Simulated scan of single mutants.
Amino acid sequence: MATSFRHFGNLPDGSPVTAFTIGDADGIHVTLLELGAAVQSLWVPADGGSTNVVLGHSDAEGYVRYADDYMGVVVGRYANRIANATFTLDGQTHTLGVNNGSACHHGGPEGFSHRVWSVTRSSSHSITFELTSPHLDQGFPGEMTVLATYTVEGAVVVLEMEATADRATVFGPTSHIYWNLAGEGSGGVDDHRLTVAAGQFLPVDDDGIPDGALRSVADTPLDFRHPVRLGNVMRADHAQLHNGVDHSLHVTGHGLRHAATLTDPVSGRSVEVHSDLPAVQVYTSNFFDGRTVGTSGTRYRQGDGVALEPQFHPDTPNRPELGDPVLRAGAVRKHRIEWRFQG
């Protein structure tokens, strides 16, 4: 199929938002938005047709009104939480935008996910979005140029993220897709099975801020080294689990590697997540309360999707032992996420 596009709605200031669809009409195809470089829907073959397996909004107004759901968007400059909305780099302390308690969350109040990106390249199976983030955007140093390229390669969807900056800063993006392999709007993901290639997780306090060093997943509900029914974990009685799962797990190995597998035993669909980032955040849509209406007209409720976010651990800019998200002036930093489908 050729790249198709359509008007998706307008922002409050009247600016138009365009939706683009790439991939194969009779295979996997993805609808992407300029707003947040978001995956709005992702269709996989099913019974002579196709099924959308990600959560999303049906128009631009939904992405603006419920921006803090981060539905399918590219999150940055830095995904997850930075404690006290500050970090120090090369001896200089930077104060960031606060939008989650006292923390900077997912890049701040107006992070990458809130912006309209430009399309710089497109074909039937690939599209590149570009965004320029000015110096001190949300408090982060350096003017940064970011590229997000989506490609459909048969049964694999790839997201490559690339950044350059004119002075030292941090770059820790992710994709915030919510999965429901039974189909968008089909209800909870309790019966989905999740595997994560991680022997350690990062404990957090009640505000989601890292509380201590990496800890073994052994003898905790966060042991996903073998397939686990999500509903059992979401409702487990454990000090780290209050409303569900919202934790960073340390993925074994380095470079592009298998991070997680999610399977729906009823449909037989599964998606493998591969990434070159050090961790994956598992988030079971703990705060969906029926206010958000999805693409099918269904109201999303707690546990209706699960986000598997390859990323740096939360607060790594203040915890260098957890990783290195620093992007130096003139350097190029690239990260890759692959979603490989079966069934």
Rank of each mutant, 00 (worst) to 15 (best):
F312N: 00
F224L: 05
G23V: 05
M144S: 08
S122W: 03
A182V: 04
Y150V: 05
N99S: 10
L33F: 03
V273M: 12
F341L: 07
V17K: 02
G111L: 08
L249K: 12
G294E: 07
V251S: 09
P109F: 03
H94M: 09
G48V: 15
T18I: 13
T88M: 14
N318Y: 10
E272S: 15
V74I: 12
A37H: 00
I209R: 04
V170P: 01
T21A: 09
S41D: 11
L159E: 06
D59P: 12
D24P: 03
V170K: 00
N100F: 02
I82H: 04
A236R: 08
M234T: 14
P314N: 14
A236K: 12
S41Y: 01
T149G: 06
G268A: 12
L136I: 15
Y178K: 03
H250G: 03
R121T: 11
L327H: 00
P12A: 10
G27N: 04
C104M: 08
D237G: 10
W179F: 15
T21Q: 02
D289N: 14
H313T: 03
G244P: 13
G244R: 00
G183R: 02
T263Y: 00
Y66L: 10
W117F: 10
A198D: 03
H192R: 08
D191S: 10
G76M: 05
L96A: 05
D26S: 13
T51Y: 00
I22D: 00
S58V: 06
G343L: 12
D24W: 05
A259I: 11
D13G: 11
G27I: 05
A85E: 03
G91F: 13
N286C: 14
G101K: 06
A103K: 02
P278G: 12
D289K: 08
I337D: 07
H192W: 10
A329Q: 09
G36N: 06
V189Y: 00
P173R: 11
R115K: 15
V119Q: 06
L327R: 01
S50A: 15
F224T: 02
D324S: 09
V273C: 07
G187L: 06
W339C: 00
P45Q: 15
V293W: 05
T174Q: 12
G154M: 14
V158D: 04
G268C: 12
V74H: 04
A83M: 02
H57T: 06
F224A: 11
G111Q: 09
F287G: 07
T174Y: 13
A25K: 12
V245H: 04
W179A: 01
V157R: 00
D207L: 10
G255R: 06
M1W: 11
R6M: 13
V98T: 04
A103F: 06
N84F: 01
F20S: 08
A38H: 10
V53R: 05
H226I: 10
